[in-house]
Each structure stands twice: as structure tokens, then as C-alpha cells.
Amino acid sequence: MKVLVRITDNNTIIDCTGDVDLYSSPQLREKLLESMRGANSRVLVNMSGVSYIDSSGIATLVEGLQLSQKTRTRFGLFGLRSNARSVLELARLNKVFAIFDNEQEALEKISSTEPFSGLA
């Protein structure tokens, strides 16, 4: 898996490529939590290159969501392939995360989404 971080304006975009599993999810976790603690108020994960995600990857995203609540960061995902989307739906997390079709939509709409709404 490859994880690259891009900074644009007030956004941090994490480009994730490959399989996100027990081996690789710590890399995503490190970048995600680092980004959440950074100066930007919007963090997006580009999942268009994610070919597989397991429970450890989902746990990483949920941890990011929880931290976004504490750091008052708007957090979203975009570009999910059908398998990743299916896994989130199966876990009933598709309504918990802010999910966008692509980067453009994510950048346009992330500011207007209700922040932190997925968590009690």
C-alpha cells in the first residue's frame, strides 16, 4: 500500500493506494492521525486506489472519525470502489462517514456537511 499526503489550501488529502489490511493499516493510521492534528481543518481520504479494505482498515477510518470530533476537523472519504463501499455498507458505516464520489465533489461539499454527525 502507498499513502501520500497532499496539502491544498485548507485541505489535507490522503491518497491511499493498494490493500488496506492488518499489515498496511498502521501506515494509513499514522498519516491520518497526523493530519487530524495538523493545521488544516478539512481532511479527506482518497480511496480511489484502494483495492481491498478489511476490518483493521475500517477501524483506522473510525478512529480518524473519532479524532476529527475532538479536533473539530471535517473528515470525509471519496472515490470508493464498489468493494470498499460494500464493506462500509455491510458495517452500516456508510451513513456515519461523509462519502463523496470524487475529489471535486468532496472539496465542494465537505465544508457544507454537518461535521461529526456520525458519532454520538
Binding site: D54, S55, A59, Q66, G118
Partner: peptide, 17 residues
Amino acid sequence: ALEDVRPGGLGTYFIKC
């Protein structure tokens, strides 16, 4: 429980599915 949104605990659920 799926409504208990927290990291972890989904592996069992996926296997069951």
C-alpha cells in the same frame, strides 16, 4: 453491535456475513 461505532470488533461480523 453495529450501532456501537468504535474502532475494532468488525472482523467477527464480516466472517459471519
